[in-house]
Amino acid sequence: MGSLTTGLRRDGRSSGRRSRIPLPGFAGRMMAPGLLVLAGVSLLPFAAVVIMSFSRVHLLGGLRLEGAGADNWTRLFTDPDMAWAWARTAGYFLLTVGGEMVLGTLLAICLWRLRHGRNAALSLLLLPMFVAPVIVGLLGRFLTDSTFGLYSWLLGQAGYHGDLMGDKTTAFLSVTLMDIWEWTPLVTLIALAGLTSVPSSVLEAASLDGAGMPRTLRHIVLPAIAPVLLVALLIRSMDALRYFDIIWNTTGGGPADATKTASVRLYETAFRFFDFGYAAVTGLLMLAVTTVVARYFVRLLDRKGLAR
Protein backbone atom coordinates (compact mmCIF):
# COMPACT_ATOMS: atom_id res chain seq x y z
CA MET A 1 0.00 0.00 0.00
CA GLY A 2 3.01 2.19 0.33
CA SER A 3 3.37 2.53 -3.38
CA LEU A 4 -0.05 4.05 -3.62
CA THR A 5 1.16 7.33 -2.42
CA THR A 6 3.20 7.97 -5.53
CA GLY A 7 2.01 11.14 -7.10
CA LEU A 8 -0.98 10.15 -9.12
CA ARG A 9 -2.70 13.30 -8.27
CA ARG A 10 -1.87 16.87 -9.10
CA ASP A 11 -3.22 19.15 -6.50
CA GLY A 12 -5.01 22.11 -7.94
CA ARG A 13 -4.80 24.23 -4.87
CA SER A 14 -1.95 26.67 -4.48
CA SER A 15 0.45 25.67 -1.77
CA GLY A 16 0.82 28.94 0.00
CA ARG A 17 2.03 28.97 3.55
CA ARG A 18 2.67 25.33 4.30
CA SER A 19 4.90 24.15 7.02
CA ARG A 20 8.12 22.68 5.72
CA ILE A 21 8.50 20.32 8.64
CA PRO A 22 5.65 17.89 8.30
CA LEU A 23 4.79 16.05 11.47
CA PRO A 24 6.10 16.77 14.94
CA GLY A 25 3.51 19.47 15.66
CA PHE A 26 0.37 18.93 17.70
CA ALA A 27 -1.40 17.55 14.66
CA GLY A 28 1.41 15.10 14.13
CA ARG A 29 1.34 13.91 17.71
CA MET A 30 -2.39 13.40 17.45
CA MET A 31 -2.00 11.29 14.33
CA ALA A 32 0.93 9.23 15.53
CA PRO A 33 -0.77 6.47 17.54
CA GLY A 34 -3.41 5.73 14.95
CA LEU A 35 -1.02 5.81 12.04
CA LEU A 36 1.49 3.59 13.82
CA VAL A 37 -1.14 0.95 14.51
CA LEU A 38 -2.37 1.23 10.95
CA ALA A 39 1.12 0.89 9.56
CA GLY A 40 1.70 -2.16 11.73
CA VAL A 41 -1.40 -3.98 10.58
CA SER A 42 -1.13 -2.97 6.94
CA LEU A 43 2.39 -2.20 5.73
CA LEU A 44 4.08 -5.35 6.98
CA PRO A 45 1.45 -7.71 5.57
CA PHE A 46 1.45 -5.74 2.35
CA ALA A 47 5.19 -6.11 1.96
CA ALA A 48 4.85 -9.82 2.67
CA VAL A 49 2.19 -10.16 -0.01
CA VAL A 50 4.43 -8.44 -2.54
CA ILE A 51 7.28 -10.80 -1.70
CA MET A 52 4.95 -13.79 -1.83
CA SER A 53 3.83 -12.80 -5.31
CA PHE A 54 7.37 -13.48 -6.51
CA SER A 55 7.73 -16.75 -4.63
CA ARG A 56 6.62 -20.29 -4.31
CA VAL A 57 5.21 -20.49 -0.82
CA HIS A 58 6.01 -23.63 1.17
CA LEU A 59 3.90 -24.16 4.24
CA LEU A 60 5.16 -27.42 5.62
CA GLY A 61 7.50 -27.35 8.59
CA GLY A 62 7.23 -23.60 8.91
CA LEU A 63 6.72 -21.13 6.14
CA ARG A 64 9.45 -20.84 3.54
CA LEU A 65 9.54 -18.74 0.42
CA GLU A 66 11.40 -19.86 -2.63
CA GLY A 67 12.06 -17.26 -5.28
CA ALA A 68 10.02 -17.90 -8.37
CA GLY A 69 10.84 -14.79 -10.36
CA ALA A 70 7.87 -13.51 -12.27
CA ASP A 71 6.31 -16.98 -12.68
CA ASN A 72 3.19 -16.11 -10.76
CA TRP A 73 2.77 -12.89 -12.67
CA THR A 74 3.23 -14.42 -16.12
CA ARG A 75 0.73 -17.10 -15.19
CA LEU A 76 -1.81 -14.34 -14.83
CA PHE A 77 -1.66 -13.75 -18.57
CA THR A 78 -1.98 -17.39 -19.56
CA ASP A 79 -4.79 -18.17 -17.15
CA PRO A 80 -7.81 -18.84 -19.38
CA ASP A 81 -10.34 -18.29 -16.60
CA MET A 82 -8.97 -15.09 -15.12
CA ALA A 83 -10.23 -12.72 -17.82
CA TRP A 84 -13.72 -14.13 -17.42
CA ALA A 85 -13.53 -13.79 -13.67
CA TRP A 86 -12.72 -10.13 -14.10
CA ALA A 87 -15.47 -9.61 -16.65
CA ARG A 88 -17.95 -11.08 -14.20
CA THR A 89 -16.48 -8.97 -11.43
CA ALA A 90 -17.05 -5.86 -13.49
CA GLY A 91 -20.63 -6.89 -14.16
CA TYR A 92 -21.21 -7.72 -10.52
CA PHE A 93 -19.66 -4.43 -9.43
CA LEU A 94 -21.75 -2.35 -11.83
CA LEU A 95 -24.99 -4.13 -11.02
CA THR A 96 -24.59 -4.18 -7.26
CA VAL A 97 -23.07 -0.78 -6.67
CA GLY A 98 -25.12 0.82 -9.44
CA GLY A 99 -28.32 -0.78 -8.19
CA GLU A 100 -27.60 0.20 -4.63
CA MET A 101 -26.88 3.79 -5.58
CA VAL A 102 -30.01 4.20 -7.69
CA LEU A 103 -32.36 2.37 -5.35
CA GLY A 104 -30.78 3.87 -2.24
CA THR A 105 -31.13 7.41 -3.55
CA LEU A 106 -34.65 6.79 -4.78
CA LEU A 107 -35.63 5.37 -1.45
CA ALA A 108 -34.01 8.25 0.41
CA ILE A 109 -35.99 10.75 -1.65
CA CYS A 110 -39.18 8.83 -0.99
CA LEU A 111 -38.51 8.75 2.74
CA TRP A 112 -37.62 12.39 2.72
CA ARG A 113 -40.95 13.21 1.13
CA LEU A 114 -42.86 11.03 3.51
CA ARG A 115 -44.77 13.14 5.97
CA HIS A 116 -45.75 10.46 8.42
CA GLY A 117 -43.81 7.57 9.76
CA ARG A 118 -40.52 8.52 8.23
CA ASN A 119 -38.50 7.49 11.25
CA ALA A 120 -40.28 4.21 11.71
CA ALA A 121 -39.88 3.36 8.04
CA LEU A 122 -36.22 4.30 8.08
CA SER A 123 -35.59 2.18 11.15
CA LEU A 124 -37.03 -0.87 9.47
CA LEU A 125 -35.40 -0.22 6.13
CA LEU A 126 -31.97 0.03 7.73
CA LEU A 127 -32.09 -3.44 9.25
CA PRO A 128 -30.32 -5.43 6.49
CA MET A 129 -27.10 -3.47 6.82
CA PHE A 130 -26.64 -4.81 10.32
CA VAL A 131 -26.77 -8.43 9.21
CA ALA A 132 -23.48 -10.29 8.99
CA PRO A 133 -22.61 -11.09 5.35
CA VAL A 134 -22.11 -14.74 6.23
CA ILE A 135 -25.66 -14.82 7.58
CA VAL A 136 -26.95 -13.06 4.46
CA GLY A 137 -25.35 -15.79 2.37
CA LEU A 138 -26.77 -18.63 4.44
CA LEU A 139 -30.15 -16.94 4.63
CA GLY A 140 -30.12 -16.48 0.87
CA ARG A 141 -29.43 -20.16 0.47
CA PHE A 142 -32.25 -20.96 2.86
CA LEU A 143 -34.73 -18.77 0.98
CA THR A 144 -33.86 -19.97 -2.51
CA ASP A 145 -33.52 -23.68 -1.81
CA SER A 146 -35.59 -25.46 -4.39
CA THR A 147 -37.11 -27.88 -1.88
CA PHE A 148 -38.10 -25.66 1.02
CA GLY A 149 -37.09 -22.11 0.09
CA LEU A 150 -39.73 -19.47 0.64
CA TYR A 151 -38.79 -17.53 -2.47
CA SER A 152 -38.69 -20.63 -4.64
CA TRP A 153 -42.15 -21.47 -3.39
CA LEU A 154 -43.44 -17.94 -4.05
CA LEU A 155 -41.99 -17.99 -7.55
CA GLY A 156 -43.57 -21.40 -8.05
CA GLN A 157 -46.94 -19.95 -7.08
CA ALA A 158 -46.34 -17.17 -9.58
CA GLY A 159 -45.69 -19.70 -12.30
CA TYR A 160 -41.90 -19.81 -12.39
CA HIS A 161 -40.72 -23.35 -11.84
CA GLY A 162 -37.08 -23.01 -12.77
CA ASP A 163 -34.36 -23.18 -10.19
CA LEU A 164 -32.97 -19.84 -9.18
CA MET A 165 -29.50 -21.07 -8.38
CA GLY A 166 -29.41 -23.65 -11.15
CA ASP A 167 -29.52 -21.28 -14.08
CA LYS A 168 -26.55 -19.09 -14.89
CA THR A 169 -28.45 -15.85 -15.37
CA THR A 170 -30.83 -16.22 -12.46
CA ALA A 171 -28.04 -17.37 -10.15
CA PHE A 172 -26.00 -14.29 -11.03
CA LEU A 173 -29.00 -12.05 -10.56
CA SER A 174 -29.86 -13.72 -7.27
CA VAL A 175 -26.47 -13.12 -5.68
CA THR A 176 -26.57 -9.58 -7.03
CA LEU A 177 -29.96 -9.00 -5.47
CA MET A 178 -28.77 -10.38 -2.14
CA ASP A 179 -25.94 -7.88 -2.13
CA ILE A 180 -28.35 -5.12 -3.09
CA TRP A 181 -30.67 -6.22 -0.32
CA GLU A 182 -27.94 -5.92 2.24
CA TRP A 183 -26.29 -2.67 1.20
CA THR A 184 -29.00 -0.43 -0.28
CA PRO A 185 -29.89 0.72 3.25
CA LEU A 186 -26.41 2.15 3.76
CA VAL A 187 -26.79 4.28 0.65
CA THR A 188 -30.28 5.29 1.74
CA LEU A 189 -28.98 6.36 5.12
CA ILE A 190 -26.16 8.43 3.70
CA ALA A 191 -28.31 9.98 0.98
CA LEU A 192 -30.99 10.84 3.50
CA ALA A 193 -28.37 12.48 5.66
CA GLY A 194 -27.44 14.57 2.66
CA LEU A 195 -31.04 15.42 1.86
CA THR A 196 -31.86 16.60 5.36
CA SER A 197 -28.96 19.00 5.13
CA VAL A 198 -30.25 20.67 1.95
CA PRO A 199 -31.30 24.11 3.24
CA SER A 200 -35.06 24.51 3.00
CA SER A 201 -34.59 28.05 1.74
CA VAL A 202 -33.10 26.64 -1.42
CA LEU A 203 -36.12 24.44 -1.94
CA GLU A 204 -38.54 27.23 -1.23
CA ALA A 205 -36.79 29.42 -3.75
CA ALA A 206 -37.08 26.67 -6.30
CA SER A 207 -40.77 26.21 -5.66
CA LEU A 208 -41.35 29.96 -5.93
CA ASP A 209 -39.69 29.81 -9.31
CA GLY A 210 -42.36 27.36 -10.29
CA ALA A 211 -39.90 24.57 -10.94
CA GLY A 212 -41.67 21.19 -11.05
CA MET A 213 -40.76 18.27 -8.87
CA PRO A 214 -38.59 16.40 -11.38
CA ARG A 215 -36.75 19.57 -12.30
CA THR A 216 -36.20 20.53 -8.70
CA LEU A 217 -34.84 17.09 -8.03
CA ARG A 218 -32.59 17.11 -10.99
CA HIS A 219 -31.26 20.65 -10.84
CA ILE A 220 -31.34 21.44 -7.14
CA VAL A 221 -31.53 18.36 -4.97
CA LEU A 222 -29.27 15.92 -6.77
CA PRO A 223 -26.41 18.41 -7.23
CA ALA A 224 -26.71 19.35 -3.58
CA ILE A 225 -26.36 15.77 -2.40
CA ALA A 226 -23.88 14.68 -5.06
CA PRO A 227 -20.88 14.86 -2.71
CA VAL A 228 -22.69 12.72 -0.15
CA LEU A 229 -23.63 10.21 -2.80
CA LEU A 230 -20.00 10.05 -3.78
CA VAL A 231 -19.11 9.17 -0.22
CA ALA A 232 -21.63 6.34 -0.34
CA LEU A 233 -20.26 5.27 -3.69
CA LEU A 234 -16.75 5.23 -2.31
CA ILE A 235 -17.65 3.16 0.74
CA ARG A 236 -19.54 0.65 -1.33
CA SER A 237 -16.99 0.33 -4.08
CA MET A 238 -14.25 -0.36 -1.55
CA ASP A 239 -16.17 -3.34 -0.25
CA ALA A 240 -18.00 -4.54 -3.34
CA LEU A 241 -14.84 -6.04 -4.79
CA ARG A 242 -13.62 -7.57 -1.55
CA TYR A 243 -16.64 -9.24 -0.09
CA PHE A 244 -17.43 -12.72 -1.26
CA ASP A 245 -19.33 -14.22 1.68
CA ILE A 246 -22.67 -14.11 -0.09
CA ILE A 247 -21.48 -15.82 -3.24
CA TRP A 248 -19.37 -18.33 -1.36
CA ASN A 249 -22.23 -19.37 0.88
CA THR A 250 -24.87 -19.64 -1.84
CA THR A 251 -23.54 -20.73 -5.21
CA GLY A 252 -19.87 -21.22 -4.40
CA GLY A 253 -19.09 -19.66 -7.78
CA GLY A 254 -21.39 -21.81 -9.91
CA PRO A 255 -23.28 -22.83 -11.88
CA ALA A 256 -20.79 -23.15 -14.72
CA ASP A 257 -18.67 -20.45 -13.05
CA ALA A 258 -21.44 -17.89 -13.60
CA THR A 259 -20.85 -16.27 -10.21
CA LYS A 260 -17.11 -16.78 -9.87
CA THR A 261 -15.83 -13.27 -9.35
CA ALA A 262 -12.24 -12.28 -8.76
CA SER A 263 -12.66 -12.32 -5.00
CA VAL A 264 -14.07 -15.84 -5.09
CA ARG A 265 -11.12 -16.88 -7.26
CA LEU A 266 -8.76 -15.29 -4.80
CA TYR A 267 -10.26 -17.11 -1.84
CA GLU A 268 -10.23 -20.37 -3.74
CA THR A 269 -6.62 -19.99 -4.84
CA ALA A 270 -5.48 -19.18 -1.34
CA PHE A 271 -7.55 -21.49 0.80
CA ARG A 272 -8.66 -24.34 -1.40
CA PHE A 273 -5.56 -24.69 -3.53
CA PHE A 274 -3.10 -23.20 -1.02
CA ASP A 275 -1.29 -21.52 -3.86
CA PHE A 276 -0.35 -18.42 -1.94
CA GLY A 277 2.02 -17.11 -4.58
CA TYR A 278 -0.65 -16.88 -7.21
CA ALA A 279 -3.18 -15.72 -4.65
CA ALA A 280 -0.85 -12.85 -3.82
CA VAL A 281 -0.81 -11.84 -7.47
CA THR A 282 -4.60 -11.97 -7.67
CA GLY A 283 -4.89 -10.02 -4.45
CA LEU A 284 -2.49 -7.31 -5.58
CA LEU A 285 -4.37 -6.97 -8.83
CA MET A 286 -7.62 -6.57 -6.93
CA LEU A 287 -6.05 -4.01 -4.66
CA ALA A 288 -4.77 -2.08 -7.66
CA VAL A 289 -8.16 -2.05 -9.33
CA THR A 290 -9.93 -1.00 -6.14
CA THR A 291 -7.37 1.72 -5.64
CA VAL A 292 -7.79 3.10 -9.12
CA VAL A 293 -11.56 3.11 -8.78
CA ALA A 294 -11.45 4.70 -5.34
CA ARG A 295 -8.84 7.20 -6.48
CA TYR A 296 -11.14 8.27 -9.26
CA PHE A 297 -14.04 8.76 -6.89
CA VAL A 298 -11.91 10.64 -4.38
CA ARG A 299 -10.79 13.05 -7.06
CA LEU A 300 -14.34 13.50 -8.17
CA LEU A 301 -15.27 14.14 -4.57
CA ASP A 302 -12.57 16.76 -4.18
CA ARG A 303 -13.78 18.53 -7.25
CA LYS A 304 -17.39 18.44 -6.11
CA GLY A 305 -16.39 19.53 -2.67
CA LEU A 306 -14.52 22.49 -4.12
CA ALA A 307 -17.33 23.36 -6.48
CA ARG A 308 -19.62 23.70 -3.55
Binding site: A47, A48, I51, F54, S55, L60, G61, G62, L63, R64, L65, E66, G67, A68, G69
Partner: peptide, 27 residues
Protein backbone atom coordinates in the same frame (compact mmCIF):
# COMPACT_ATOMS: atom_id res chain seq x y z
CA UNK B 1 9.23 -35.96 7.60
CA UNK B 2 9.79 -32.49 8.96
CA UNK B 3 12.15 -31.40 6.20
CA UNK B 4 14.90 -29.05 7.21
CA UNK B 5 14.57 -26.07 4.90
CA UNK B 6 16.67 -26.98 1.87
CA UNK B 7 17.84 -23.57 0.78
CA UNK B 8 17.97 -23.48 -2.97
CA UNK B 9 20.28 -21.01 -4.58
CA UNK B 10 17.42 -18.99 -5.94
CA UNK B 11 15.70 -18.67 -2.65
CA UNK B 12 18.79 -17.32 -0.99
CA UNK B 13 19.20 -14.70 -3.62
CA UNK B 14 15.65 -13.62 -4.14
CA UNK B 15 13.48 -12.26 -1.45
CA UNK B 16 15.83 -13.72 1.09
CA UNK B 17 15.33 -10.89 3.49
CA UNK B 18 11.59 -11.21 3.52
CA UNK B 19 11.68 -14.96 3.64
CA UNK B 20 14.14 -14.94 6.48
CA UNK B 21 12.12 -12.50 8.46
CA UNK B 22 8.93 -14.47 8.05
CA UNK B 23 10.65 -17.76 8.71
CA UNK B 24 11.99 -16.36 11.97
CA UNK B 25 8.57 -15.10 12.84
CA UNK B 26 7.14 -18.52 12.21
CA UNK B 27 9.70 -20.32 14.28
Amino acid sequence: PRPAPPLSRRSVLRGAAGAGAMGLLAA
